[in-house]
Simulated scan of single mutants.
Amino acid sequence: MPSHPQLPLSRRGFLTASVTAGAALALASVPARAAGGKRPFGRHGSPAARLTPKTLYVDPHGSGDFTSVRAAVAATTGSGWTLVLAPGTYRETVAVDATRTQATWIGASEDPRDVVVVYDNAAGTPKPGGGTYGTTGSATTTVQADGFTARWITFANDWLRADHPEITGTQAVAIKVQGDRSAFHHCRFLGHQDTLYADSMALTVFARQYYAHCYVEGDVDFVFGRARAVYENCHFRTVNRTDLAAAPYGFVFAPSTAGANPLGYLVARGRITSEAPDSHYKLARPWVPSSDTTARPMLTVRDTWMGPGIDAVAPYTNMSDAFPWQNQRFAEYRNTGDGARITVPANRPQLTDEQAKSATRAAYLGDWTPWQGVR
C-alpha cells in the first residue's frame, strides 16, 4: 500500500502491559498440572491429555511441546493439526504455507488479550541479507493454507513510525491471510498501517474468509486486500494521531477486489469507533494495485454503527485519481450513528432492499459454512 507519512500514537506499552496482566490472571485461575507442577492449558487440555493425536501445545515458559509458534508449525507437516497456545507473548514471525491445510490455533485461556503473536517489521525495514521486507514481508503472521481457523488470539505488529523516522516504507502488517476458507473468531488484530491484509494467493483465486466477533485497530488502510471476506459483529477502531494538523488521519478499509470477482468485503452488524477527533477518518478508499489495474474494489457496509470519527459528509476518497471511488463498488445499507449520517446522498451509495438480500454471509461464502460455535 502507498506510504502515508504520519507518526502514530505509540501502542506498544499498552499492548505489553495488557498481555502481561492477562497472562498472569489466566494462569492463576487454573491449577497447575499434577505432573511436575507445569503451567496449565486451561480447559483445552495438556500435553498429557491431548484434544486429538494431532494436537500440539505451545508455551513460552517451557511447559508445552514447543516454546514458539514457529517451531510448532514446522512440526505440523500435512493437514489437520491443532495448536493450543498458552498465555504469553510470542515475539516471532510465523508462516503457515499452503501445504499445512486445515490448521487450527486456539488461545488456551479463551481471552485473546492473553495470547499475542507479535513482531515489529515494516515494509522499509532492512533485511539481514540486503533490501527491505516490503509490505507482504512485513507480516508478523502469514497464512497461505486453506482451511485455517484461529480463536482467541491477538495478531499484532508493534512497529512504530515514531521510533524509525529514517524509514519511509511504513506499512507494517499484523497478519496476511491468503488461504480459502479461513476463519477467525474472537481474535484481535493490532497495528497502524495495513494491520489486516485479507488477500488471496493469486488474482484468479477468490479466497473466502470469515471474521466473527473480532477487533481490528489501526490508522491507514488497516483492513485491505482482495479476499472475498465477511466481517460479522466486528469492532473496528481508529487510533489517534498527534502529528497532523488536518484530517484525514487515515482510512478503515482499502479493498483491492479483482475485477473478475463479483464479491469483495462485506461488513455486517459491526461497530466503528475512534480515538481521534470527529470526522478525522474516512470509511474507505479503493486500492487498485499497479500489478492489477483491472481491479474493481468492492465494499458493502450494512447494519453497522459508525461513530463520529468517520467523516459523514465525504466518507470515501481516492487512493489514485486515475481510479475514482465513484467508479468502484462501494455501498451501504441501514447503517446508524453520527458517522453514518447521509448528508450528501451522492457521497453515500445505498443498497436497495432488494439488493440487500444478496449482501449476506451465505452469498459471499457460497458452499462453505464456517463453524458458528463461538459467540
Rank of each mutant, 00 (worst) to 15 (best):
K127H: 13
V117S: 00
P87F: 05
Y133H: 07
P60V: 12
L83A: 03
D292C: 11
L263M: 10
V96M: 07
A174W: 12
G88T: 11
D367H: 11
G45W: 11
L25Q: 12
A98W: 10
G250V: 01
A314G: 01
M319I: 05
A108H: 12
T168N: 06
D321K: 12
T142V: 15
A276I: 07
A346R: 10
T168V: 06
N327Q: 11
C234G: 05
W325C: 01
D59H: 09
S3D: 09
L266Q: 02
A246F: 05
C214E: 02
F189P: 10
G107W: 08
D321F: 09
A108L: 04
L56Q: 02
P255A: 01
A26G: 09
G259P: 03
A34W: 10
G13V: 09
D219P: 01
P126L: 07
P40W: 02
T336M: 14
F206A: 08
V117M: 08
G78K: 11
S10W: 11
P262K: 13
D194M: 09
G169N: 12
D219N: 11
L190V: 07
Q102E: 07
H192Q: 12
A123G: 09
A229D: 03
V230H: 03
G134V: 04
A295M: 03
C214N: 13
F155G: 01
G218D: 02
E232G: 01
D278R: 13
F222Q: 00
G169P: 02
S291F: 12
L9N: 14
H61T: 14
T55G: 02
G45K: 10
R375A: 06
S358L: 13
A245Y: 04
H192G: 08
G339F: 07
V374A: 13
A48I: 00
M298G: 06
L25F: 15
V69Q: 10
D158S: 10
D146N: 15
F222S: 06
L365A: 04
T195M: 00
A359H: 08
T89I: 12
L299E: 00
G147N: 14
A103E: 07
N318C: 02
V94T: 13
T125Q: 01
R302D: 03
G64C: 07
W152R: 06
G250K: 07
R296P: 05
V143I: 07
Q209T: 04
K176I: 08
A74I: 09
A17Q: 13
D146F: 09
V96Q: 11
G373L: 05
D353G: 06
P128A: 12
T300V: 13
A71D: 03
R269L: 00
Q178K: 15
V216C: 08
T140D: 06
D321V: 07
P87G: 08
Y231E: 01
S138F: 01
P47R: 13
